[in-house]
Design a protein around this nucleic acid. Structure first.
Lengths: 216, 216
DNA sequence: TCATTCTCTAAGGTATATCCCTATTCATTA
DNA sequence: TAATGAATAGGGATATACCTTAGAGAATGA
């Protein structure tokens, strides 16, 4: 009895080629390929795959949303996220959405094959790199007990300062704009970096753009 | 005599699996795999591939810049861009940078195989969708000829440094990566800021993202 | 309600990065 | 051949970032 696998990726080149390679594995069988989240949900319902290998960034309906809906509808399917993102937020969100595994596209193909078998055996599977990220996050939360995930959320003032930083304003400019001490701005900046685990202005700027705190 | 192919993609999962599938084609042989632009340039020099299949968005040194340098150094290699982007600017820039083919990751695998043979036969190859985009652009440019490219304001080295800055690397990191003095990086940064009339890292980062020198 | 945790504010001291100027080499070009 | 541009890099002054500490007020939770 072979493992029924469904592949979901908006890049046909990826899913098609993965499919061809997975066909070589004698204990697996690709039963469906979808190129967006909506299609994935429909095909999951129809084909009842054991394992769904899913990309996150897709048009129409993204992988995170698709995860949630598939978990609600056909929870017997187990989802492995195959993403190019290794940022903490993505991993955490994916796991919250019900993914049982998370691997990077940067990984070797055999990692995917291994993860499919692992997840099929009712285990989880995280890329070693990802495991590091998640554990680090978890340990940091242990030190400040009580308050879970929302710790990473920025305060309104911090968001305000972040926006100004990412728009190219200097510490002094911002202090002047907000009519407070430059030292306070520095403290805010440090606090933002600490919360987001980002280490410099370039990374802050990228984050702010990604999160829509500022626009390009 | 088989076609020597090099694959360049920061997603190992993609290049590795493409490699396995290309190995089935009797007239092709994958001679090298790189996961960033710098590596690609080095391997192109060493292995002299006939065809280079290259992704555009990569850390460290992006595909566009890598194209330009490979064209300057080993122009006998012919480059096919394999990108998830189908926006006009990317295609146009890639062709300007010397790419002979451009296909989307959304395309079927056989499109890639076909394009490799086509480009090897000294033809170009554009995805049908892409062809439409390029032709439209070409016609539009006929109306206003000689529009200078703003990116050309920066030298190749400067673009390289700009990418690294906008990816959050410190001056020292960059100096180490490029194996030159930190003082030189400072000079490059100053020169970039001067040319672009930008005054800080946040603005540089935004510019780099807007111009596709780095990706989010 | 009272203790605890955030948030916003800010300073002092040290380390590090940036800024401005100058300069050499090599390649290209007028 | 003189001039320009690109890549390299050092010296010295200044600015900024980083680390630590801290207080007042708001919010929260037991």
């Amino acid at each position: 009895m072979s493992i029924k696998v469904m592949l979901v990726d908006d890049h046909k080149m990826v899913s098609e080629v993965l499919s061809a390679l997975l066909a070589r594995e004698t204990d697996m069988e690709v039963v469906a390929i979808a190129d967006n989240g909506r299609e994935a949900i429909r095909l999951a319902r129809e084909t009842k795959p054991d394992i769904i290998v899913m990309d996150l960034t897709m048009p129409e309906l993204n992988g995170l949303e698709a995860c949630r809906r598939i978990m609600a509808e056909t929870p017997e399917s187990r989802i492995i996220v195959l993403s190019m993102h290794m940022e903490r937020e993505y991993v955490v969100e994916a796991i919250k959405a019900g993914a049982k595994g998370y691997i990077q596209k940067m990984s070797a193909f055999k990692t995917l094959v291994g993860s499919i078998r692992s997840v099929q055996e009712k285990n989880g599977f995280l890329d070693p790199i990802i495991t590091g990220i998640v554990l680090k996050d978890y340990i940091e939360h242990l030190n400040k007990p009580g308050v879970p995930n929302e710790q990473s959320a920025l305060s309104s003032r911090e968001r305000e300062v972040l926006q100004l930083i990412s728009e190219g304003k200097s510490t002094k400019d911002i202090a002047f704009t907000l009519n407070i001490s430059a030292k306070t701005i520095e403290t805010h900046r440090r606090q933002i970096m600490l919360k987001l685990k980002l280490n410099n202005v370039a990374e802050l700027t990228r984050y702010a753009i990604r999160e829509g705190i500022t626009s390009l």
